[in-house]
């Protein structure tokens, strides 16, 4: 088994906000997240708002400092690196952000944006830069004349391609994509997803694809991690997890994803109160879970255990697999 490209161990991030004169409010955005990505692997990270998935992405790049936990890239401990080393290592891990309209500097031309990583890395001459930028434009399928356009002269899909080109120009080994197509039209999304998949193949990249859309993740990723309120509740091979999920939250996500097919059924009404406060020491999904076993689930936090599909699940009442009624 080859060593993984990226490993995160027990990642934790707590945001403390001061509320009034009285006290501080601690928000555990990411709670004990452990994951690993192998070279060339396509991993999806799925969750809704508040799941902490975007925070995880930023933690992995140390754009946000983890409160606890270890991150290793190609064996190197990221937490131990000084700022300068870290900056150099970041070139191997590129990120594409969600909103194409705000990811590009409004006063830089497309070419300038794409060239930024080269300029920051330094040591590359002007001619080489121009040539590499032109190559990237070919790679992402945009005409070279677009190089001199400003972001406001480009469509959403084109802007996202520019962001992708910028991310790839230094030939990183890992690409983290934070909802790269959520702000795009469906027809454009398909183009971008196809582009990403072909680039991934061609450049032997590893992906961490973050999305709230299960269908997109099914399409692009071989492995998937499901997050809920800061914790990974289930992970495993995409085709298994999405076919017969072990965790009730994954099941509810699945039921809520509406495919455009005739006879698609709306998910069942939520029987349980969803808008409660913070969970105590128990399972975070307890308040909404249709399979909860009180008071056990409320008091004891589930730890990840092997799931029927070979991956992991953190649930006291996990489904045992194809024999159970679950999933889509």
């Amino acid at each position: 088994m080859t060593s993984p490209l990226l490993e995160a161990d027990g990642l934790r991030k707590v945001f403390t906000t001061r509320s009034g004169v009285r006290g501080r409010h601690a928000n555990v955005a990411v709670d004990d997240v452990t994951l690993s990505i192998a070279a060339g692997e396509r991993v999806g990270l799925v969750g809704e708002s508040g799941s902490g998935k975007s925070t995880v992405a930023r933690l992995l790049l140390r754009l946000v400092e983890p409160t606890a936990g270890a991150i290793r890239f190609e064996g190197q401990d990221l937490m131990a690196l000084p700022e300068a080393e870290l900056r150099r290592l970041r070139r191997h891990m590129a990120m594409v952000f969600q909103n194409p309209h705000t990811s590009l500097h409004p006063r830089m031309t497309a070419a300038q944006s794409v060239a930024e990583p080269l300029r920051i890395a330094g040591g590359v001459g002007g001619e080489t830069i121009t040539r590499r930028v032109a190559e990237m434009f070919d790679l992402i399928g945009l005409p070279r004349s677009f190089r001199y356009r400003y972001p406001h002269e480009l469509s959403g899909g084109q802007k996202q391609r520019i962001s992708i080109a910028r991310a790839l120009i230094l030939r990183p080994r890992l690409m983290i994509l934070d909802e790269p197509t959520s702000a795009l039209d469906v027809s454009v999304q398909a183009q971008i997803l196809e582009l990403l998949l072909s680039l991934q193949q061609e450049l032997a990249l590893a992906f961490l694809f973050i999305s709230h859309n299960l269908a997109v993740v099914r399409y692009t990723c071989t492995r998937v991690l499901v997050m809920y309120r800061g914790a990974i509740v289930e992970q495993g091979e995409t085709r298994h997890v999405l076919a017969q999920p072990a965790h009730p939250y994954t099941q509810s996500l699945l039921a809520a994803t509406l495919d455009p097919v005739p006879g698609a059924k709306l998910p069942a009404p939520e029987v349980v109160d969803g808008d409660g406060g913070d969970a105590g020491s128990g399972c975070r999904y307890c308040q909404r879970c249709p399979r909860r076993m009180l008071p056990y689930c409320r008091e004891v936090a589930p730890v990840p255990v092997p799931a029927w599909h070979g991956g992991q699940v953190a649930c006291h009442a996990a489904s045992d697999g194809p024999s159970e009624q679950g999933g889509h």
Binding site: G157, Q189, A190, Q191, I192, L193, A215, R218, Y219, L254
Partner: peptide, 23 residues
């Protein structure tokens, strides 16, 4: 037809997504 073939679905196990070329 183009829209339908561009939407990623949970249920599809085969087939590529086809976007609509152009803008």
């Amino acid at each position: 037809r183009g829209l339908l073939s561009a939407v990623p679905r949970l249920a599809d196990t085969a087939g590529t997504l086809r976007g609509i070329p152009g803008q």
